[in-house]
Computed example of a mutant assay.
Amino acid sequence: MLVAELVELLEQRYPLSWAESWDRVGLTLGEPSAEVTKVFLAVDCDPRTVQEAVAAGADFMFTHHPLLLRGVSSVAPTTYKGAVVHRMIKAGVALYTAHTNGDVASPGVSDALAARLGLLDVRPLIPVGDDGRGHGRIGRLPSAMALADLAALVSASVGGVRVAGPRTATVETVAVAGGAGDAWLADAARAGVDAYLTSDLRHHPAHEHLAAGGPVLLDVSHWASERPWLDDVAAFLRRETGLQTIVSDVDTSPWTFLEDGNS
């Protein structure tokens, strides 16, 4: 399969027109006529994941976050992003990104997060079309559980979690949003769900949300909330192309450990 053919397939699945106007998605690096034999998938394109892709012999890298989201005036190898670009070009690795167009897709980033929790009757938190697309997802747990038990489920199936709410609070309906989700706190409250799971929640918006009686909050790392989607994309590519896929588990979160003062 050629890079151009794989790009066409991905853009049928995640049209560029679905991306936000500020986003930078699609093919970033790579010759359209180059052959693709192995696809490497990661949340971020950084030196660690690029090295992993090169070591694995991948010739196409699919990432969720754009490497060049904001304009740069140079891709000299002495710069952080320039070094990544040069490494990939020398190794013959194409780079493709699906970001906010993957967020709103159906199935998309938040569908994968909802599936990790086993949510049923899943629907968009904020619909953007009549085909199941939209920001975030709402679903119900197979059976109601205490917030403490939901936190344990999230920790085991997604990653470490911060929780705001009484441990004994009963949760049955849950809204989820992969990536930074405090922009949709009010939407989660209006939806009447019992809990909202997302990442990158900020102090003041979360405080005001809870003071207004909004649903309890569960906050995981940005990386952890989006990593499950890569498995879905990889399965789609294997099914449609027969290409070998490798999904990175390199945690590209900037936070490396928790110090609670008790160790």
Rank of each mutant, 00 (worst) to 15 (best):
A195N: 05
V171I: 10
L197K: 14
H209N: 15
G192T: 15
H135C: 15
G178Q: 04
M145P: 02
V216T: 08
T198H: 11
S143D: 08
Y196F: 14
A195M: 05
D149F: 00
I138A: 09
Y196G: 15
G160R: 07
S221Y: 10
G192A: 13
T173M: 14
G139W: 03
L153H: 03
H209K: 12
S199V: 05
L197H: 15
S155W: 04
L218P: 04
V158Q: 08
A189C: 15
A156C: 10
V158C: 12
A177G: 09
A188R: 07
G136Q: 05
L201G: 02
T168M: 06
V174G: 06
A144Q: 10
S199Y: 08
R162P: 06
G213L: 05
R140M: 11
L217F: 14
V193C: 11
G192L: 09
H203A: 02
L150G: 00
D194M: 04
Y196P: 15
G136Y: 05
A175F: 02
P142S: 15
H135V: 15
V163E: 01
M145K: 03
L218H: 04
W223G: 03
A169I: 12
V193N: 10
H222T: 09
H222Y: 14
V193H: 11
D219M: 01
V174M: 08
D219Q: 02
E172M: 02
G139L: 03
L185Q: 05
H203L: 02
D200P: 11
R202Y: 13
D219K: 00
L197P: 12
L141D: 11
P205C: 11
L217C: 15
T198W: 09
D200I: 07
R202F: 15
G178D: 05
V163C: 02
A212C: 10
V193L: 11
A175C: 04
R190F: 10
L217D: 15
A211W: 04
G179F: 01
E172I: 02
L150H: 00
L201N: 00
I138N: 11
H203P: 01
A146W: 02
A212R: 10
E208C: 14
L141H: 13
P215A: 07
G213V: 06
A191E: 10
A212Y: 07
R162N: 09
W223D: 03
G214D: 07
H204P: 07
D149G: 01
L150D: 01
W223A: 03
L147D: 07
A195F: 03
L218S: 04
H222F: 09
L217T: 13
V154H: 02
P142Q: 11
S221D: 09
G181P: 12
H203E: 00
D182S: 06
P215N: 14
H209V: 12
L141I: 09
S157G: 06
